[in-house]
């Protein structure tokens, strides 16, 4: 269910008259942006990507005086938006609120019409979505090793809920079952909230993702570990999977603002500079962490490198799990 909206075009009240002209105030020398910016959200409104776009869009408007207009194209895990995006003019005036899935997972598990290397490029890193492993409190395990041991003793008992096939959470499950040598059943749901409700009611026992944090805090779920090698400030007691004895790469999810790879280089630099400037503000950092992300900001080259690494690692996992689209 979608609509696009002009963030600035609303005044409170039934009349809601559009205020178009804002005082142009440029905080940096380049001409970008010389006109309004369209912000493509590949998922439903109200989700993480939408929330990020609303925070960043508000700041872009505040700094540059240009409107940011959200456009939503959900569907097929983001593939519909990505296919649509690459068909637009690569002038740098349409941003896409993407995740690493667009570089590493979607092109592998779905039939797509875009090339993740030559068509789109991540210009900044907004933040990492910490993939928390959480279990229903009835599962007799308090850490990763105990969970693996329990699953080995009781094969065919544990299952995990995700928001669908080929999502990062699904690949987290595949990763855990392969690296841990255990058998856990994947149960796809219609969205993360439904999966979460199923885990709270013990229909499934394991959840992967940042959404578990408030549930762990409330005691309705139990935190086990965090995927990867970096702890999360919000849950400092939660060990990483590396610390928990499963070394090496682990699936992770991170959010990025992406643009056409064919956009002019100076425009890409300007977008990167503008957005990194926004992301460095302490207040924005705080709001980004409030969404459940580990904020970060990296330059173009660093994000690109990370996307490539992910593509290689996820690719191996997708092949092992037999998820690659024919």
């Amino acid at each position: 269910m979608i609509y696009a909206l002009s963030r600035r075009s609303f005044m409170i009240g039934a009349a809601g008259a559009a205020i178009a002209a804002a005082t142009p105030f440029r905080s940096f020398a380049e001409d970008y942006p010389a006109k309004d910016i369209t912000y493509l959200i590949p998922y439903n409104p109200g989700g993480m990507s939408d929330n990020i776009s609303r925070i960043l869009g508000e700041q872009i408007t505040k700094i540059t005086g240009k409107s940011v207009i959200n456009e939503y194209k959900p569907g097929a895990g983001g593939a519909i938006a990505a296919n649509y995006y690459v068909g637009l003019e690569p002038d740098g005036y349409t941003l896409m609120q993407a995740t690493n899935s667009f570089y590493a997972i979607i092109p592998a598990v779905t039939k797509v019409e875009y090339d993740p290397v030559n068509d789109i490029v991540p210009v900044v890193l907004v933040g990492d979505a910490p993939m928390v492993i959480a279990v229903h409190p009835s599962v007799p395990a308090n850490n990763l090793q105990e969970l693996i041991a329990y699953a080995k003793e009781n094969p065919g008992v544990l299952s995990y809920g995700t928001s669908g096939r080929g999502t990062v959470a699904h690949l987290c499950g595949e990763w855990l079952s392969r690296r841990g040598g255990i058998e856990i059943l994947h149960v796809p749901y219609n969205g993360t909230p439904e999966a979460m409700q199923a885990c709270i009611s013990n229909e499934v026992q394991i959840m992967f993702g940042p959404e578990s944090a408030p549930q762990i805090e409330a005691g309705t779920l139990k935190g086990i570990a965090i995927m990867g090698d970096r702890r999360w400030e919000e849950m400092p007691d939660l060990p990483t999977t590396v610390e928990s004895g499963v070394p090496g790469w682990a699936p992770r999810s991170w959010h990025t603002v992406s643009v056409h790879a064919k956009a002019p280089d100076e425009i890409k630099q300007a977008i990167g500079k503008l957005l990194n400037g926004i992301l460095q503000q302490p207040e924005i950092t705080k709001r980004i962490s409030g969404l459940g992300l580990i904020p970060g900001n990296q330059d173009l080259a660093a994000v690109r490198k990370r996307a490539d690494e992910d593509a290689a690692e996820f690719g191996k996992l997708i092949d092992e799990a037999g998820l690659r689209a024919k």
Partner: peptide, 12 residues
């Protein structure tokens, strides 16, 4: 989403 943007984490 609106709550999150306002800095409220909806939870139990």
């Amino acid at each position: 989403g609106a709550m999150l943007i306002q800095g409220i984490v909806p939870g139990p």
